[in-house]
Nucleic acid binder design. Structure first.
Length: 725
DNA sequence: GCGTCAAGGATTTTT
DNA sequence: TCCTTGACGC
């Protein structure tokens, strides 16, 4: 008899019910911090150990590589053995694997390469140029968004009606040209991976039935984030087998803007009539007050599946609310609190500052630097996104596939070798006329002597270089291959000669790339007969790598609310709780988007384990303009009993340097009768002295030091002040 | 080809 | 306000 103690003991009733349920379609509604990964992991191990399902017959899909890694790690830990043939991966990673295995049936060249979004944008810009379209009128970003949105819905250019308005017809034409170029170059963007993989299964019954039979159990994490094509793909795989096990939380759906369909979680119930729903509502992360407050906020959304988090932990502290004068004061307050936390022995890494938009990080960074507190900002450039790394990869990609136009354009003149825009333009024309790649076009032009001697020589030199590198490095070990390429391409030399520290850092990064190649273990997911180089390139495209700073150091965490999803911290600061910032101005008009903002708020609040601070500023400089936002509506949605206002103002004497408002300009703009230093009296607060004036007209405000009530900011229009002599 | 200047744009992010 | 991007000139 198998001992299932380890498997079931750590679970609560609902979790256990989900883990041990018979094979059937199942929707696990897992609230924040309710142990959803644990349920997935234990469910999979249960199937292997108790139900006798072979790991080979199990598929688990996640959104991020990190989640996939974590899940595999935990499964192996529980199983006490490696899980080689169990498929765990991201939607994109798995789609890529399918396409590699069935390239021909997917109508792709065996050597196809994956483009990241920056590559995609370059291609789009090229298309716009080729079509003679003005980028101002057809913003490349918007085109990119349009194309991806179509692909996310499974729509190709040829599916789109020719009838629409001019704008639509033009967009479709661009889309079509884009598809043609990608096909010619063997390039596949992220959305295309999913769409192709779906078409592959849909149009090839033999392939489909092979995988339908193989995968006895399909598991999906973060199901609320799936888009149309991802869900369609899942349904193809599991069609009549009722073997789809999804875990998700409709209240944590925050990626609607990039195609995620929260509706999938509702449709699931229609598409799989025999399904079971299990709710995980016991939260193991936060204290009672935080959870109750979060429950109240999210309750303002409509059409939820309905869940209420609860905890066995005590009430804990109320949420602290701080009204800052301005963004500087907000940062000051947050950093003071972090200081106090550290002073009491708390770890810096247990504190997180969460904001709605990246632009907000600056003031906190400045203060942290000032205070000498180490910190880490999430969301910078990733390793594989760095220019020098992409250049090196471009050479490698050309070695793997000469028709890769994006890579060709990227490095044809990097390092500079005298191939100018003119030559590349000529190449593009030929390539387009003949419907072929730049590489082939270059061949043709060289053979027909269509180039000037100088350009011709330079171009021939480049092509020989690539051919030579390919020949020389064939059969080499991967890292040796990468090393040679980096050197022979001239990139190392190029960056060494470029000036200063920047170049040095780039050389170091290139060395790091060689190192990454050395550490890269293709065996991990080489169930296919792919070469190590191809696998490495795919890895580079599908996993942009960690950000710069690793989290080895104990440092304060700064990130957007979006990137905080899935994480937890003892002390959380949600900053910038203001109308127009959070909820974002762009979202307030549309109820759907507003609800997504509210879910984001819910996600943010439920990150906090012990202490949650929420702050807003009464005045905020944004894009060079002073704003006087109102506190976020989400704050009003929290019942007062869970809130505690922090009153610091009278105690905080702000350093003069942090007071940008006392400028001559702002003082002179005060047309009113009030002056700095003027004594005034107020009906409620009594007598005081004006410390600062800012704004004008109806917006004019004064900071007043009241003898009895302390320092306050008041709108002059409403304050009803009387001037004293 | 590189450096300088001006204009425009500025949620949220993974793959 | 500030940063990125593109155009233009050496």
């Amino acid at each position: 008899m198998i001992d299932v103690t380890d498997l079931l003991d750590p679970l609560n009733d609902a979790q256990r019910q989900a883990v041990t349920a018979p094979s059937q379609a199942m929707l696990v509604l897992a609230g924040a911090g309710s142990g959803k990964t644990r349920v997935l992991v234990h469910r999979i191990v249960w199937q292997i150990q108790v139900q006798g399902v072979s790991p080979h017959g199990i598929l688990a899909v996640t959104f991020t590589n990190k989640a996939a890694r974590e899940m595999r790690g935990r499964i192996e830990e529980l199983l006490q053995r490696p899980t080689h043939n169990l498929w765990i991966g991201t939607f994109h990673g798995l789609a890529h694997r399918l396409l590699r295995r069935h390239a021909r049936q997917a109508k792709l060249p065996e050597t196809f390469q994956v483009m990241d979004s920056a590559d995609q944008l370059r291609v789009i810009k090229r298309i716009l140029q080729a079509l003679n379209l003005d980028e101002a009128k057809w913003p490349p970003k918007q085109v990119q968004w349009f194309i991806n949105a179509q692909k996310d819905e499974g729509v190709r250019a040829r599916h789109m009606p020719e009838t629409g308005d001019l704008y639509m017809r033009q967009m479709i034409a661009i889309y079509r040209a884009y598809e043609e170029l990608c096909d010619r170059s063997g390039l596949v963007d992220f959305a295309e991976l999913l769409l192709r993989a779906h078409e592959l299964l849909r149009d090839n019954p033999d392939v489909l039935s092979f995988y339908q039979e193989r995968f006895q159990q399909v598991h999906v994490d973060e199901f609320q984030d799936t888009n149309t094509i991802q869900y369609a793909w899942l349904r193809l795989l599991t069609q009549d087998k009722n073997n789809l096990f999804v875990v998700g939380d409709d209240d944590q759906s925050i990626y609607g803007w990039r195609g995620a369909r929260i509706e999938n979680i509702y449709s699931f119930q229609k598409h799989f009539p025999g399904h079971e729903v299990i709710k995980l509502e016991q939260n193991y992360r936060s204290t009672g007050n935080i959870l109750k407050a979060a429950n109240q906020v999210i309750a303002h959304n409509e059409g939820r599946l309905g869940k209420e988090l609860w905890t066995e932990a005590g009430e804990g502290e109320p949420i602290s609310l701080y009204a800052a004068f301005n963004e500087q004061d907000e940062a000051f307050f947050v950093i003071e609190r972090i200081r106090a936390w550290i002073k009491e022995g708390g770890a810096r890494a247990d504190t997180a500052i969460l904001y709605r938009s990246n632009a907000q990080s600056r003031q906190f960074e400045e203060r942290l630097v000032q205070a000498g507190i180490p910190y880490r900002v999430y969301g910078g450039l990733r390793f594989f996104e760095r220019a020098e790394i992409k250049n090196a990869l471009a050479y490698l990609r050309l070695i793997a596939n000469r028709d890769d136009d994006v890579s060709f354009e990227r490095v044809v003149n990097t390092p500079t070798r005298g191939i100018g825009a003119k030559t590349v333009d000529d190449l593009r024309v030929i390539a387009r006329d003949r419907g072929t790649s730049l590489w082939r076009a270059a061949r043709i032009m060289l053979e027909h002597g269509m180039l000037s001697a100088r350009a011709g020589n330079a171009l021939a030199g480049f092509m020989q270089l690539v051919d030579r590198m390919a020949a020389e490095t064939e059969g080499m070990e991967l890292f040796e291959q990468v090393k040679r390429t980096v050197e022979k391409s001239g990139l190392i030399e190029f960056y060494q000669n470029s000036k200063g520290e920047q170049g040095e850092e780039k050389v170091e990064n290139l060395e790091e790339l060689v190192n990454a190649a050395r550490l890269f273990d293709p065996a991990i997911d080489n169930e296919d007969n792919l070469g190590p180089l191809e696998l490495f390139l795919a890895h580079a495209a599908l996993e942009a790598g960690e950000m710069q700073g690793e989290d080895f150091d104990d440092c304060v965490q700064l990130m957007t609310l979006h990137s905080a999803k899935g994480l937890e911290f003892k002390v959380v600061f949600m900053v910038g709780m203001e109308e127009g910032l959070f909820p974002s101005l762009q979202s307030v008009e549309d109820p759907k988007r507003l609800e997504e903002e509210r879910r984001l708020c819910y996600v943010g609040m439920t990150r906090a384990m012990q202490t949650l601070y929420m702050t807003y500023a009464e005045s905020r400089r944004l894009y060079g303009r002073e704003n006087y936002p109102r506190p976020s509506r989400f704050l009003r949605e929290i019942p007062a009993e869970y809130l505690q206002e922090v009153r610091l103002r009278a105690q905080v004497s702000r350093p003069a340097a942090a007071t940008p408002l006392k400028t001559a300009a702002s003082a002179s703009l005060s047309v009113s009768q009030y002056k700095l230093g003027q004594r005034v009296s107020h009906a409620k607060f009594g007598e005081g002295v004006i410390l600062q004036l800012e704004g004008q007209g109806a917006q004019e405000r004064a900071q007043i030091n009241f003898k009895a009530a302390g320092v306050k900011w008041l709108m002059l229009a409403y304050a009803g002040l009387a001037a004293l002599p």
